[in-house]
Write a protein that binds this DNA or RNA. Structure first.
Lengths: 335, 335
DNA sequence: TTGAAAGCGCTACCAG
DNA sequence: CTGGTAGCGCTTTCAA
């Protein structure tokens, strides 16, 4: 609990010199610096973040806003952010709240206004009008991951590209009856909308618009399971290919197919997007992204923006990589 | 960006009066209070957390330490904590770091010492010696969830009880060859150890110690899948019942059994602990716990301890509830 | 290269 | 019931 005054006294210097020695700003003789450091160490001195913050205007902390931590993508991104922040010595203040909830309201109305951070990372934010205004009013740099048009996305995979590759993969294997599984469309998150439209455009480009079908499902593994179970139990209308909105939904579909004794990939090909932790165990063909690295990249970018708010870096969308496993195969000639 | 001085000026009072009116401490006439509040509102005044913290010694923030956010239990607990904290107007500072990692070292060595919180919630902490010392040195209240003996656990299910009920359930159904699946034992987390020992004791109490078997697996769905696949492909030594260390492992086992065309529950009964998000979709019999509520309970307890550090509340372990679905059934007479 | 002193924005004590 | 004043613990001019 000792303060910088104690350190200064012990080292036989003034508070100002102690401060300079410790923070590394301004001139201090090597000898003095060593003495001060030793004093600080032996006293177990830890600067008061409040006092430092008050004096410098910096919090040494980063805020993270995301919809939830119980989905694979968000939890991975969060761990990536946390690691990177820990490595930089920065604290992480979390604001997890679902879009449209009262909590989200509170986050934007009260919590963010406290400006308990030097910058903000927004993940899957899809902010509505007044939320954008709030964000701007903070006058703190914001880096966004997969956060939609309204705010501009700094880090994300190219969703259109990913879903195009996914759809093309099935088309190249000879599939025609390819459905898009996932999302309810009410409302679409920006990412999900991109993915659906990418699918539709790819189908259209291949002359398959008559086969274009959106099957709704919650974006979760059980959601995909339930929707696929419905879809696949109709023997006649059954598709031969499924492009899932993400791996959780894709895996749900694979499980549903197995339950119905529909062979994957013999009778049904399923492709996802993500390369989820469980993807390899289900032999799922997918377009791999690395959310952890996205989180880490967001931290680096934010740090640069905090140092220099004018930093306008070009956004380079990441390309997801096709990982072919065994959930996709040639369509049967007969179908 | 206006400060309390601006508010005071606008309301025509002193800073002290403005402060009293806004914080609700001390006497202020109703009229004055209203005037000050209006001024604050019209200026969009938000107190500086640093200044408040410096003056009061309170941060209005809670630290959360946990091993990871990518496991069902931890992510659920974290969401429970976050919700409760948002409702109380408290910020959440997250320190996610795996036991034994360099990051965990940094968390205990540097981050926690900054005392950026009025209290700490530790989830699944299992702290080692010097970590406990660090924790004490903070002189901040700590509430622990499922955190092991060393620090004492405030909120958790009674693991011994849960696994006993699970094991008894299988025994009552006539199973004898019952294995315990999950955990590597190197080292055991406190919770996992409790569960294994509970299983062993229950087997012993039923005169089944000769059947007591621990099959190791990573504590994850793919981990359970892999281990169960190995275990079950040995037709002769195959058990008829599996008590899994948690639902993720149990679900992995159910999937493995299906792959091997082993009927669940016809030929194999599987029981888990958790009532994971996916449990009902896999018809998994399990002992249900509610990690979200545990998180919320921890917040309430911590708030009480912050208000009165002497609060010594009795720890009431929660009893998990047996949820019977269709992954368990009578053992075949022949086995 | 060092020290004195003035804040950072707020709360809390003490008179009035 | 209200206002003046003294810090909270640190950084940062400005002189020396």
């Amino acid at each position: 609990m000792s303060g910088i005054a104690d350190v200064a006294r012990m080292a036989g210097v003034s508070k100002s010199t102690a401060s300079r020695a410790l923070t590394g700003s301004g001139y201090v003789s090597d000898l003095t610096r060593r003495r001060v450091r030793e004093a600080a160490a032996s006293l177990g001195y830890v600067p008061s973040t409040n006092a430092v913050g008050l004096a410098t205007g910096r919090t040494r902390s980063v805020g993270v806003v995301l919809p939830r931590v119980t989905r694979w993508f968000f939890s991975e991104v969060l761990e990536g952010i946390q690691s990177a922040l820990l490595a930089e010595g920065l604290d992480l203040t979390l604001y997890a709240s679902a879009p449209g909830s009262a909590e989200r309201e509170a986050v934007f109305g009260d919590f963010l206004s406290r400006r308990r951070f030097d910058g903000l990372i927004a993940v899957g934010l899809d902010p509505v009008g007044h939320e954008i205004a709030h964000l701007r009013a903070l006058s703190r740099p914001v880096v966004s991951i997969a956060s939609g048009d309204a705010i501009g996305t700094d880090v994300a995979i190219d969703d259109e590209h990913a879903v195009r590759r996914a759809t093309e993969h099935l088309i190249e294997l000879g599939h025609r009856r390819i459905v898009f599984l996932g999302g309810t469309g009410s409302p679409w998150s920006h990412v999900d909308e991109q993915r659906f439209h990418g699918y539709r455009r790819t189908m259209a480009a291949a002359g398959l618009e008559s086969y274009t079908t959106h099957v709704m499902s919650e974006i979760s593994l059980p959601g995909g399971y339930g929707a696929a179970a419905d879809l696949l139990s109709d023997v006649d209308g059954r598709p031969t290919g499924i492009v899932a909105i993400c791996d959780e939904v894709a895996i749900g579909a694979v499980i549903a197919a197995r339950r119905l004794a529909i062979s994957v990939p013999g009778e049904l090909s399923v492709i996802g997007i993500d390369d989820h932790e469980y993807a390899s165990m289900f032999s799922l063909t997918t377009l791999a992204q690395r959310p952890r690295e996205q989180g880490a990249a967001a931290v680096q970018l934010l740090i640069r923006r905090i140092a220099d708010p004018e930093t306008a870096e070009p956004v380079t969308p990441i390309r997801a990589r096709l990982v072919v496993r065994h959930s996709t195969a040639l369509a049967h000639p007969g179908t």
